[in-house]
């Protein structure tokens, strides 16, 4: 008996979804494989493009300059909500960086090949959908928090939060405006936060703000709001503050009509 026979070998077997066999609507079929390889190819071409000597992208990542360039190529305006559509698709964890996994599996899930023209078309359709489809808007806006915050932090600085909200709550996003009276909530919200909220914006506050914006646009009397319900404190306080402001609004309207 040789000593070798007692030996046992261990190897890892990767069972999770690999980028090459991503789950999705058309997982496993031949076109998917070719779609992913086309995306992989596209990713590499985006990555290696040298902008300058200093800006060499790391492996499996597209750095800030190339990311911006790519976003513009697919028809995104870096100053409005459309930017967050693409960041959401490619699962960007920060605004200036796209990772390979997210890029390939994200576009594949969306059913789009590694082709600028198709991607551009998809983005164009999505931009149009943004203001119409509130669930789609919420999905994109929720991801804005993930992409917008510093990777090592839990919360978003207030200034940044307001900046991203400004992008999201304006066309082509969904303005935070009351359906009946056309009251524009967003300036009030920012005014309130700047006066009364010296803190950061947590994920919960971000998400609840989106929900509150959606509900208050549909029902600007805020009758859906209930002190006993689970709205975060900041929204409870905003509602109280807002209701204090209302009589003044009413008075002003009377003045205007007089």
């Amino acid at each position: 008996m040789s000593h070798d026979q007692r030996m046992r070998f261990f190897m890892f077997e990767q069972r999770g979804p690999s980028p090459f066999y991503a789950s999705g609507a058309s997982a496993g079929s031949a076109p998917t494989v070719s779609r992913e390889s086309s995306l992989l190819k596209q990713f590499e071409s985006l990555r290696v493009t040298k902008v300058s000597k200093d800006a060499q992208d790391e492996k499996d990542k597209i750095g800030p300059d190339n990311t911006m360039k790519y976003l513009e190529t697919v028809g995104v305006n870096l100053e409005d909500a459309s930017m967050f559509i693409v960041l959401e698709i490619v699962k960007a964890e920060t605004i200036g960086e796209i990772k390979k996994d997210g890029f390939v599996s994200g576009w594949a899930d969306a059913g789009v090949d590694g082709n600028i023209a198709t991607q551009k078309k998809h983005v164009l359709n999505s931009v149009a959908k943004l203001s119409r489809d509130k669930d789609f808007f919420k999905k994109v806006a929720k991801h804005a928090f993930v992409a917008g915050k510093e990777p090592d932090q839990r919360a978003l600085a207030l200034d940044n939060a307001i900046l991203y909200w400004t992008m999201l709550f304006a066309p082509p996003g969904r303005p935070w405006v009351g359906k009946q009276t056309g009251i524009d909530f967003f300036p009030l919200w920012t005014q309130y936060l700047r006066e009364k909220w010296p803190r950061t914006v947590s994920r919960d506050m971000w998400n609840q703000t989106l929900l509150f914006a959606e509900k208050s646009s549909e029902d600007e009397s805020l009758s859906f709001w209930d002190e006993e319900a689970s709205w975060p404190n900041v929204i409870d306080d905003f509602v109280a503050w807002f209701k204090d402001q209302r009589p003044q609004d009413g008075a002003m309207e009377v003045d205007q009509s007089a």
Binding site: A155, S202, R203, D204, S230, P232, N233, D236
Partner: peptide, 10 residues
């Protein structure tokens, strides 16, 4: 209680 729930959410 509400504040504590928020803290735990955060």
């Amino acid at each position: 209680i509400k504040k504590c729930i928020e803290i735990l959410l955060d």
